[in-house]
């Protein structure tokens, strides 16, 4: 299956949960927010959110800005 994360394609053999994806991307514990196919996924639902082939994710953080 294919996921697009922040514009880049990633391949997985099985459908990961969002928590598993964040582990795979070494993002566990980081303060971030996630949007899946245009919808916000609350942090409390990371475990139960099963990702599907073709899902488009945006994973964002706060950075310096004016």
């Amino acid at each position: 299956m294919q996921l697009t994360v922040n514009g880049t394609s990633h391949s997985f053999e099985q459908n990961p949960s969002l928590t598993r994806l964040l582990e795979y991307l070494s993002l566990t514990g980081k303060r971030l927010a996630v949007e899946c196919n245009g919808e916000i996924v609350p942090r409390s639902r990371f475990d139960e959110t099963q990702l599907a082939d073709g899902d488009k994710l945006e994973i964002v953080v706060a950075v310096g800005g004016g």
Binding site: V5, V60, V61, V63, G65, G66
Partner: peptide, 19 residues
């Protein structure tokens, strides 16, 4: 003010952050 941007994938987890 802060900006919201895509996180770097594969970034060093210990890297300092704005927060």
């Amino acid at each position: 003010t802060v900006a919201i941007r895509r996180t770097n994938i594969g970034q060093n987890a210990g890297e300092p952050s704005l927060l």
